Amino acid sequence: MSNPFEAVWKTLKSMVDIEPKSPLHVGEVMSFWTYLTVLDEAIRYEEVGLNTTTDDEVKELLVDAKKLCESQSQRLSNFMQKEGIPLPPGPKKKPKSEPQEVPLGVKFTDDEIANGVSLKIATAGIECALGNSQSIRTDVGLIWIELYTEMLTFGATTKSLLRKRGWIKVPPYYTPTGLTKS
């Protein structure tokens, strides 16, 4: 038996299939272009991280992040090509290297790598929300919801690792004037 969310999702998708499809407008196209660029840059960052870390938890985070970004990039590229949208040029794949061979002065720390992944998740979430707010076509809106939901879910996992390792960046706490401190 599928869960209720999957059932609702399938119902929404079936309704979209019968909706007439207007051409994408420039805002929708720009959002796809920008998001695909964000994903491709994130994949290269994750490759660099895998080339420099020796921490098993950070490696696992990077492998999972890369899989998610590659999956989203592939699905989005397929949709864009189907719609006749030219794809943005992406950066070249990074060759594999051994972390011990990378000089200390040029490699990120595990803290920097994990927080970089977190920042890229936040950027992707913002781009998804922007893309969704600009979408007119229902199928496009559903694409943004799906991408955002995946990033949000992965972000929760990332936040857990950052908290566990003491790497999470927390702004100063705010106490309004007149409120007693406990």
Rank of each mutant, 00 (worst) to 15 (best):
I113E: 07
I113F: 08
N115D: 07
N115C: 06
N115F: 01
G116Q: 03
G116L: 02
G116R: 01
V117D: 06
V117K: 04
V117Y: 04
V117P: 05
V117I: 15
V117C: 11
S118K: 09
S118D: 13
S118Y: 07
L119S: 12
L119V: 02
I121Y: 09
I121L: 13
A122Q: 10
A122T: 05
T123R: 10
T123G: 03
A124T: 03
A124G: 14
G125T: 06
G125W: 02
G125N: 15
G125Y: 01
G125M: 15
I126D: 05
I126F: 09
I126N: 07
I126R: 07
C128H: 05
C128W: 06
C128T: 13
A129D: 09
L130A: 13
L130V: 15
G131L: 02
G131I: 02
N132S: 14
N132L: 15
N132D: 12
N132A: 15
S133K: 09
S133F: 11
S133G: 11
S133R: 09
Q134K: 12
Q134V: 14
Q134S: 07
Q134G: 08
S135A: 15
I136V: 14
I136K: 10
I136E: 09
R137S: 07
R137D: 03
T138C: 06
T138Y: 08
D139G: 05
D139M: 01
D139A: 01
D139S: 06
V140N: 00
V140Q: 00
V140E: 00
V140W: 00
G141K: 15
G141L: 04
G141F: 01
G141W: 01
L142I: 10
L142T: 04
L142F: 15
L142Q: 15
